[in-house]
């Protein structure tokens, strides 16, 4: 235990790098997912084709290989070297964004046709329809899957130590090599990864709840870590709402 407490600052530095990678990767993935996902719902063939190419290419390439390519191959080809951190974020964002684009596309397509017809009857433009009606409704549908992708992305950051970024995994690895305390060194990483994941899950659940409330749906109650601490009766009597 002392071992971990003494080295906590190092672990926290590593965790902070992991958090930065996660936030950066998520931000990029979100923008790409929205952009290519919406493009995938346009009736004209050209934007749809571009969207399909993006999704198929980056879904098909392992994030690790993409990262190696950005970090090692790109400098050789272009003579221009990306910051390792930036290369990692780019690779993660491009990869997860491709999955996200499919989620966005299918969520938009799942908005009932009658809703779109109502926007036609009110003479809304395509842009107004997307912004006012389709995306707010599709949003609630996207969030549960987005939650999974966020966690996936966070865990995928663990490979960045292979291109020399000092993330949480890299710190644990160093610790093991320098001290030989294999078991303990990795337990520190376990705990921190788990805590980061819990915070992300909690945040995504808040977003989901808010999205459902906006659609006038009763949000699903409980779940996560709070459920075991609640008396069973409280959960069931309150669940009905009004």
């Amino acid at each position: 235990m002392d071992f971990l407490i003494q080295r906590l600052p190092l672990y926290l530095d590593g965790a902070w790098v992991t958090i930065q990678l996660t936030i950066g990767g998520c931000a990029l993935a979100f923008v790409l997912a929205m952009f290519f996902g919406i493009m995938g719902t346009i009736r004209h063939w050209l934007p749809r084709a571009i969207s399909t190419v993006y999704v198929e290419v980056f879904r098909g390439i392992a994030a690790l290989v993409l990262m190696f390519w950005m970090a090692f191959a790109l400098p050789q080809l272009s003579g221009f070297r990306l910051d390792d951190m930036f290369a990692a974020i780019l690779a993660l964002g491009l990869n997860v964004g491709a999955y996200g684009a499919e989620v966005v596309r299918s969520s938009i397509n799942a908005v009932p046709k009658a809703q779109v017809e109502a926007t036609v009857a009110l003479n809304l433009s395509w842009f107004q329809r997307m912004r006012l009606v389709v995306l707010p409704q599709a949003w609630a549908q996207m969030l549960p899957t987005f939650g999974n992708l966020v966690i996936e992305l966070m865990k995928a950051t663990a490979v960045v130590y292979l291109i020399g970024v000092a993330d949480l995994t890299a710190i644990a690895q160093n610790m093991r090599e320098s001290t030989g305390e294999t078991v303990i060194a990795f337990i520190g990483a376990f705990v921190l990864y788990y805590l980061i994941a819990q915070v992300l899950i909690f945040g995504m659940r808040l977003l989901e709840r808010r999205a459902n409330r906006k659609l006038g749906r009763t949000p699903p109650r409980g779940g996560g870590m709070r459920l075991p601490f609640k008396p069973a009766s409280a959960g069931t009597t309150q669940a009905g709402g009004i």
């Binding site: 009658a114 809703q115 009857a121 009110l122």
Partner: peptide, 16 residues
């Protein structure tokens, strides 16, 4: 199209 309005069988109000 703005000269014409329509009311649908299933109302089609925007739930958001």
């Amino acid at each position: 199209r703005k000269r014409i309005g329509m009311v649908f069988q299933q109302f089609n109000l925007f739930p958001n």
